[in-house]
Design a protein around this nucleic acid. Structure first.
Lengths: 175, 175
DNA sequence: TAACTCATGTAAAAAGTTACATGATTGG
DNA sequence: CCAATCATGTAACTTTTTACATGAGTTA
């Protein structure tokens, strides 16, 4: 049993309570680079988690808003996942999958693909570096160190991708 | 419509024909770092692809072996996917998802996690570098340039991960 | 009052995983 | 002949995506 979405939600609720809608926004704002969830999946999972006793409804607001908070059982499960279970390290990378089949294209087409990869990565580096500058110095919660570390990982990863695409492009162009 | 598994299979069959079993082995040997498929999914997808005319059975062998080859329609679809469709660049990284929640652990526990990440990445760097040395100089098919490029990406990515885990570990230890 | 955001939910389909099931062929 | 490998298939389940559906509260 792995179910990372469940643990992502538990982790967010470990910081502070929130509604399904809140959690959806939090996915979009920060967790998005490492995990994604659609609205329909999220509401369904919250229901199952409440049923399993990992979270509970602690209040209701306007527009049928339900606020969920993590329970002790939920905290225990989060901890078990973090410490007791090895992370799934399988990677799916569609951008890289395509690279395996670039030989089926004309050389200029393959080079154009790699150039596009380089461009996307460069844009991502810029965006993430700007984000880092914007939030730097605003650390207030205990988790901010780790959010920053994850952001730093994103920057380094994008830079690696950009450099790799550039050198591969040159290799492909002159082959 | 994205269906990357389909295109992974088309790409492999574009090089040369093979059975479901062959393709499964090819997944395990090389594509595994960028895409995965289970036996049951693979056989099912091959059936659908044959029905759609993207591949065809070109021969049968011992033990009910069916050899599939890519058709012109399949080649066209592979090309359309490579050129006409932007790659899905969403990333799911469970190892990094956990980093967001390390603040819920004791400091030593978080440091231990990052140390484990560093260790895994180091092992992966070694393994991939050894693989590169083993296959270097054996390039014979047109796609080998791109397989090597993908391998190179894996090495750089793992190195980036190792370095990041190391510096994050130090940050976490001294905070 | 119209547009936007907040807020939740269900249904259906696609994609992916786990488990079961069967049997032929090959190499030691 | 026994173990390993080759070879395919189906069933059930979980996970994820897409689409439909509804309605309350907020702001210009």
């Amino acid at each position: 049993m792995n179910v990372s979405l469940r643990h992502a939600l538990l982790g967010m609720l470990a910081d502070h309570p929130g509604s399904g809608y809140d959690l959806l926004k939090r996915f979009e704002l920060s967790l998005n680079f490492v995990w994604q969830a659609k609205q329909s999946q999220l509401y369904g999972e919250l229901g199952k988690m409440a049923e399993a006793g990992l979270i509970e409804v602690t209040g209701t607001g306007a527009r049928n808003r339900k606020e969920y908070a993590i329970t002790d059982a939920g905290r225990a499960e989060l901890r078990r996942w973090l410490i007791g279970e090895a992370p799934d390290r399988t990677i799916r990378n569609e951008m890289l999958l395509r690279v395996f089949f670039l030989w089926t294209l004309e050389r200029e087409e393959a080079v154009a693909y790699l150039e596009a990869v380089e461009g996307w990565a460069a844009l991502r580096v810029d965006a993430l570096e700007q984000l880092r500058e914007r939030i730097k110095g605003f650390e207030s919660r205990p988790g901010d160190l780790y959010s920053m570390a994850a952001l730093e990982y994103g920057i380094r990863l994008s830079r690696t991708t950009k450099d790799w695409a550039e050198s591969t492009k040159e290799l492909a162009a002159g082959s």
